[in-house]
Amino acid sequence: MAVDDPGRSYSHPLFDTLERFPGLDLATTTADKLLNWGARNSLWIFPMATSCCGIEFMASAASRVDFDRMGSFTRATPRQADVMVVAGTITVKMAPRVKRLWDQMPEPKWCVAMGSCAISGDFYRDIYSVIPGIDTVIPVDVYVPGCPPNPEALMAGLLVLQEKIALKTAGLKTVPAGRPETAKMISPRIKRVGHPDRMPEIDAAQCAQAMSLDLTEPPDLLAAFTAAQAAAKAAREAAEAAAADAAAADEKGGEA
């Protein structure tokens, strides 16, 4: 199942194996419960720690707060981790690397956006080199606000994630039903990479190219984008000129 599928729900890969095991198909509910229990109580964290929040992340792992005691501990490689904690500002130069590391993490996986920079870009939001929130690049399950959040706040965020997994809703980008204004508020202003709203000038193939992280290709993409923009501008200008001509002709006709 695709990572960015908005309807993605949590299913453990071991589940399929267990289901095929003779006799166990009767006990799938129990097996599911067991796997779910195991997954949520051993959330291994891959710290995508870039800036200030990384220091508070370290403080959470250190002696006072110590999230080891709920079965979470830090792994330095994405291939051994379940949760990516994005702690800190993500820049244009870093974003492709974050995406690549996220793609390397095995399913099931979750993402925690720690701190205002990872949530929305904070006061760096409008700056040329900063991504306005990590949720424009990868899907986020839990947001932990703060600048930086206290270690206790990160701990609370991880507990919320455990609850989400227990309820099997993690990975669902749930929009509160019946409250469109809330939905508008929490959805990122800049859509995810590849979203047609974000880049109307780029067709699906080029979006796929951007998502595939072929890092040798960006100039092509940029050139295509610039050409598409220029064409759109020319078309717009032509339409405006035609409208102006028509208006002038109307005026003339009125005079006559």
Binding site: T50, S51, G88, T89, T91, K93, M94, R97, F123, Y124, I127, Y128, S129, V130
Partner: peptide, 11 residues
């Protein structure tokens, strides 16, 4: 370097 360039001077 530059993976955390946040444009502070411009800001």
């Amino acid at each position: 370097p530059g993976y955390l360039h946040r444009g502070v001077e411009k800001l």
